[in-house]
Structures are given as structure tokens and as C-alpha cells.
Design a protein around this nucleic acid. Structure first.
Length: 163
DNA sequence: GTCACGATTTGT
DNA sequence: CAAATCGTGACG
């Protein structure tokens, strides 16, 4: 296996911590990819903006499952969004990948550019074909409220790399 | 089975 | 600011 790939242990941490440490790491799929520059953390309880707010459902069960897996969903009937499952098995928590180096900002643009579809939902990031490996740490990290939501906008769970 | 809605993007 | 577009979740 590739030593540089992020380990299950890396993902088995609080969503906020995984989100911050994911900045600067390299996402790769279909021969394309780049450093992660912008992410958002979504929690389980207390986070009304998260899909997991209403508990486990067929769609959100992967978020409650073991960490290090991809959570992909279609939103607005148009765009796919890519998330990384965090927290230990049985607990909810995920990180939305919003921007990758070399691609314009936006979750939808990102998945379209890389060719990510619902088929990748639940795939193991430690095995591929979608992978994330260590990269150069960002110079700094800025936290702001999350984008595109109406609930819990007071929570600064969006993180940007300042490179 | 039915129905309202959204972690977005793009064009007017 | 409004449209596009469809799976999901709540309700019955």
C-alpha cells in the first residue's frame, strides 16, 4: 500500500479536526486532482444544517458508518457533492470538500470536474479509486460560517487554506 | 403514493 | 433575483 495515503486513524477523529487537517492534502481520482483548499465540517447532534440532524436514514447511514469513506449525494437535482466520513464507527460526522487546487471553487464544480458520481458513495478512501494523500501543509487556516445553508449559520465550520 | 424542499450553479 | 431538476424524507 501507499504510505502517503491517509490512514483510517486519520479520519477517526472529530469532524472539525479532520476538516482542518485535510487542508493541503491531495485528492486524486481519474488521474485528476489537487490540493484541498476549502472544506466544511458537518456534525451530528446540535448541527441543524447537517443531513444527519434527523438521525440515521438510508442516505445518511454511511455518515454513521466507519470513517475514511466517501459520502456523495445529489443536491438540487443537479449537483453532486463530495464528503469524507469522519468520527469513529457509529458516530455522525463528515467533511464537505468545497475546493481543490486547479479547479474553481464550488462543491458541484469539483465533482463535475473530477467525474465523481453517486457510484462513489460509500467507497473506501484508503483503497481507491478515490484517494487522499498527505500534501504540503497550508501556510494558514481561516474559519468562517458555512455557505449555502440557512440553519446554524453562526457556526464557523468552514475552513480555508491561506496559500 | 404524494409532496415540499435543498450542504448549488448559472444566467437574466 | 429566479430557474433548473430529482432523490430524499416526512406523512398517510
Amino acid at each position: 500500500m501507499t504510505p502517503e495515503l491517509l490512514t483510517r486513524e486519520f479520519y477517526s477523529a472529530p469532524a472539525v479536526q479532520v476538516a482542518r487537517r485535510l487542508l493541503g492534502c491531495v485528492l486524486e481520482f481519474n488521474g485528476r486532482g489537487g490540493r484541498i483548499l476549502e472544506v466544511e465540517a458537518y456534525l451530528g447532534e446540535g448541527d441543524e444544517a447537517a443531513h444527519t440532524h434527523r438521525g440515521i436514514t438510508p442516505r445518511t447511514r454511511v455518515i454513521f458508518g466507519p470513517p475514511g469513506h466517501a459520502y456523495v449525494y445529489l443536491n438540487y437535482g443537479i449537483h453532486y457533492c463530495l464528503n469524507v466520513v469522519a468520527e469513529p464507527d457509529g458516530r455522525a460526522g463528515c467533511v464537505l470538500i468545497r475546493a481543490v487546487e486547479g479547479i474553481g471553487n464550488g462543491p458541484g464544480k469539483l465533482t463535475r470536474a473530477l467525474g465523481i458520481t453517486l457510484e462513489l458513495n460509500g467507497c473506501d478512501l484508503t483503497q481507491g479509486p478515490l484517494t487522499i494523500r498527505r500534501g504540503r501543509s497550508p501556510a494558514g487556516i481561516v474559519a468562517t460560517p458555512r455557505i449555502g445553508i440557512r440553519k446554524s449559520i453562526d457556526l464557523p465550520l468552514r475552513f480555508l487554506a491561506t496559500d
